[in-house]
Design a protein around this nucleic acid. Structure first.
Length: 499
RNA sequence: CGCGGGGUAGAGAAGUGGUAUCUCAUAGGGCUCAUAACCCUAAGAUCGCAGGUUCAAUUCCUGCCCCCGCAACCA
């Protein structure tokens, strides 16, 4: 990952407020939260941006249906996102709303520059317009040539709009993607974007006459800015407004595949138009595309009504367990992962209650029963391998080393292999359980044995401390609880078993 | 011929041109420090179907079948 003087800029997409937060939003946001916490532990300055996308005809419509003004509606939904992130213990640096005045002003400023740089021109947008809907519709919207909502045939209407010279910049974008200067991962996603470019794209209309809920075009106030332009610019306007351009450019945009095109084609294009077409150092370094959740084999959708609210999971499992359960549903960047609610219970019981929770309980109890002095834990051992064990050359040490060698924790995290990084931690947990079984440190037959057992337990406490350090980015509260228990030798169940 | 993803033990997933791996569930044994937890062992897969290339294919090629996304709310 590229660095600017120890600074890193990570983003989630800004979420469209026409629906409440669900576990898909939560997944993306969590992943960035984990990376943010990890890099901060390593001593980097991280700017983590998330927020909500609030303009456009769809929002105005949804607000009307809900009997609210668009602004009221946005305030409400945006608030739900904030609450959800608070419940999930998301440590973002800033939460942008595209209805923020400061954002709107910067968007106008940006577009003025695009215009004076010669990248905008007036053109005609022709299409079918439904009077009932008060918006342009496509053939796909129609049933038997009529609008399904209003049962009327749309009229052919042409609208004067402003267009962005996207085509002119496409060869440049293509080259940047092919050469990985604009890195798109995984490879599959890169091919998909290149495929879209190869098919050819037209210049895009960046303004709308027919949409009133949006940012006014600064030089022609009868038009509003196309929502996608408005939305993409958030990554830039926030740093501008906060005076934090030292974090620019973006190191990583994380997203699901459906919005990949916008982030990998249009977004770099408008940045080149603004900064000059050789300003590749202003472009995002990496776009990473992750899989989608399906619920019991089906896509989450409002129509099916199978959307899972992260708050419900938090109520049942708690914040950290929910973080863990969501992050381990599938290999990052791989295919879609299926979530079945019963499997979440299983995973909670096996990994968290029987795995992590039980291990902490048995080690801390052993320490208490054998009156082992609390151990001082060296912090900052995130990368693993730094703990010093008492019993040199022991089976414990060997098992721990083996467990550590199986996965490279840091490398996994830096490559966004979140499931693998967690796998590294669970290898350690397994190694500890095995060693307790073979060493039987609860036996107190004689003094010699007692001394040996004390050493074993101290070592286990040290490894437990390491596990806690590694857990910090994923389950911050749990990590602190474990460290507290090690320090005080007071055992308290971390994850009560579900029945 | 729209485009794309996928079909591997009961469930969920890895994986590779040459003894098929992991997690959960199941069975037997062990242990008793621990959240009926932990440890060991076992059973369980003709790797979707049919052809082909090869000394050798689950892995490469061809055809077929089935599931699921992309066009409509939606990361």
């Amino acid at each position: 990952m590229a660095e600017k003087d120890n600074k890193i800029y990570l983003t989630t997409p800004i979420y469209y407020v026409n629906s409440k937060p669900h576990i898909g939003h939560a997944y993306t946001t969590l992943a960035i939260d984990v990376l943010t916490r990890y890099y901060r532990i390593l001593g980097k300055e991280v700017f983590f941006l998330t927020g909500t996308d609030e303009h456009g005809a769809k929002i105005a419509e949804a607000a009307q249906k809900a009997g609210k003004t668009p602004q009221e509606f946005c305030d409400e939904i945006s608030g739900l996102f904030k609450t959800a992130w608070q419940n999930l213990n998301i440590d973002y640096s800033y939460f942008i709303r595209t209805t923020d005045k400061s954002h709107e002003e910067k968007v106008a400023e940006f577009l003025n520059v695009l215009k004076s740089n010669g990248y905008l021109y007036e053109g005609e947008y022709a299409g079918k317009y439904c009077v009932g809907c008060e918006k342009f519709v496509t053939d796909k919207d129609l049933v038997d040539g009529k609008c399904p909502d209003h049962k009327c045939e749309p009229q052919d209407v042409a609208e004067e709009n402003w267009f962005f010279k996207l085509r002119q910049l496409l060869p440049k974008i293509k080259e940047l993607i092919e050469s990985d200067k604009l890195l798109i991962l995984p490879e599959k996603a890169k091919s998909e974007v290149l495929g879209v470019i190869k098919q050819g794209l037209d210049d895009v209309s960046i303004s709308r006459k027919s949409v009133s809920w949006g940012i006014k075009l600064p030089w022609e106030e009868s038009q509003t800015v196309y929502v996608w332009i408005d939305a993409l610019l958030n990554y830039w306007t926030v740093l501008q407004n906060l005076g934090k351009m030292e974090f620019w450019p973006v190191d990583l945009h994380l997203m699901g595949r459906e919005i990949l095109k916008f982030h990998c084609i249009m977004w770099p294009a408008i940045l080149l138009a603004y900064y000059g077409d050789d300003a590749i150092d202003q472009l995002p370094k990496q776009a990473f595309c992750h899989g989608y959740f399906t619920i019991d084999g089906q896509k989450m959708s409002k129509t099916i009504g199978n959307i899972v609210d992260p708050n419900d999971l938090i109520k049942k499992y708690g914040t950290d367990a929910t973080r863990y359960l969501l992050l381990t549903q599938f290999p990052f960047g791989g295919n879609d992962g299926d979530v079945s609610l019963s499997r979440l219970d299983e995973k909670y019981n096996s990994d968290l209650a029987s795995g992590l929770g039980n291990l902490v309980a048995r080690v801390v109890t052993l320490a208490t029963k054998l009156k082992v002095q609390p151990v001082r834990i060296a912090t900052q051992s995130v990368a693993g391998g730094s703990a010093k064990l008492k019993v040199k050359g022991s089976r414990l040490e060997q098992n721990i080393l083996e467990a550590k060698n199986k996965y490279n924790f840091s490398l996994a995290l830096e490559n966004l292999k979140i499931d693998e990084a967690l796998g590294a931690i669970w290898e350690l947990i397994g190694a500890c359980d095995k060693i307790i079984d073979t060493e039987k440190p609860w036996e107190l037959a004689n003094e010699k044995l007692k001394t040996k057992n004390e050493k074993v337990i101290k070592d286990l406490l040290v490894v437990l401390g390491e596990i806690a350090e590694m857990l910090k980015p994923f389950m911050p509260q749990t990590a602190d609880k474990i460290l507290e228990q090690i320090k005080t030798n007071k055992s308290e169940p971390l994850f009560p078993r579900l029945n």
